[in-house]
């Protein structure tokens, strides 16, 4: 066990995997209780937690690891993040009824961040690492811009509830990815402000918040999915003459 570790990294991985798997199972059960589009959406919301649970199991078993800065880093985590981002993009596409092209562009931009981050850890110092680190930040900022700019403009054409759900998902992505990048920046491999235990605990906590947040937001907006694919609410403004559905704007 490393210096100051309260529990070993393996235990933390498996513990986090257990929490993620439990959450994914709960959301899967909730999906089974729904039908039609709502079931598909809730199931899609459970995918990030399930993917990260698998990733953490793999990390605990030390599969697909690379050595960076004297420590082994798991490639599986980034694969898990990729699955999470793809699932999130699908959810956003369903909510906003994005075109296929807009969806692919958004997914591609979002996927740049985790893989640039992984790439930035591989060079052992030097200009390439700095470039890749900068590319990671740029990719994050680019993704944030894309979500806040074009996609948000796209969201203004749909109803208020869909727009609110998208905005929450967007903010969750920006917040959690910002937190992950910040933790990566202050990790012992970079600025050295944190160590393995703190970094791992923070990453696990952020992953839990991110994946459970996605699933929770998807479940909270389940009353709007039945009309998502059938009739897209292309409303320029929402001036409803009927009362909003119960519990929709809490």
């Amino acid at each position: 066990m490393a210096d100051g570790m309260v529990v070993s990294a393996t235990v933390m991985y498996f513990g986090t995997a257990a929490l993620l798997a439990g959450g994914a199972a709960i959301f899967a059960v909730l999906a089974l209780r729904e039908s039609g589009t709502t079931r598909r959406m809730v199931a899609l919301g459970a995918v990030p937690a399930a993917a990260m649970a698998v990733a953490y199991v793999c990390m605990g078993m030390e599969w697909l690891t690379v050595t960076t800065g004297g420590r082994e880093q798991s490639v599986v985590r980034h694969i898990g993040y990729s699955v999470v981002l793809v699932a999130s993009s699908l959810i956003v596409r369903e909510i906003l009824s994005l075109s296929r092209r807009r969806f692919l562009v958004m997914t591609g931009i979002l996927l740049l961040t985790p893989w640039f981050a992984l790439a930035s850890w591989l060079p052992d110092g030097g200009a390439l690492e700095s470039v890749l680190t900068l590319a990671t930040i740029v990719a994050y900022l680019g993704g944030t811009y894309f979500l806040i700019g074009p996609i948000t403009r796209e969201a203004k054409t749909v109803g208020g509830k869909r727009r609110l759900l998208y905005v929450k998902l967007r903010n969750l992505f920006v917040l959690c990815w910002g937190a992950l990048i910040l933790q990566s920046a202050i990790s012992e491999q970079s600025l050295g402000l944190t160590n393995l235990f703190v970094g791992q605990l923070g990453a696990s906590y952020t992953d839990l918040v991110f994946t459970f947040g996605i699933a929770g937001l998807v479940v909270s907006g389940k009353q709007i999915y039945e009309v998502t694919t059938a009739s897209v609410e292309r409303e320029t403004t929402s001036a409803p003459t009927t009362a909003p559905p119960a519990g929709g704007d809490e």
Binding site: D3, A179, T194, N195, L201
Partner: peptide, 16 residues
């Protein structure tokens, strides 16, 4: 070092 790491991590999570 562990204290600094703990405070740094705590700040990040608090912001989160």
């Amino acid at each position: 070092q562990r204290g600094i790491a703990a405070i740094s991590g705590l700040m990040v999570l608090l912001l989160l």
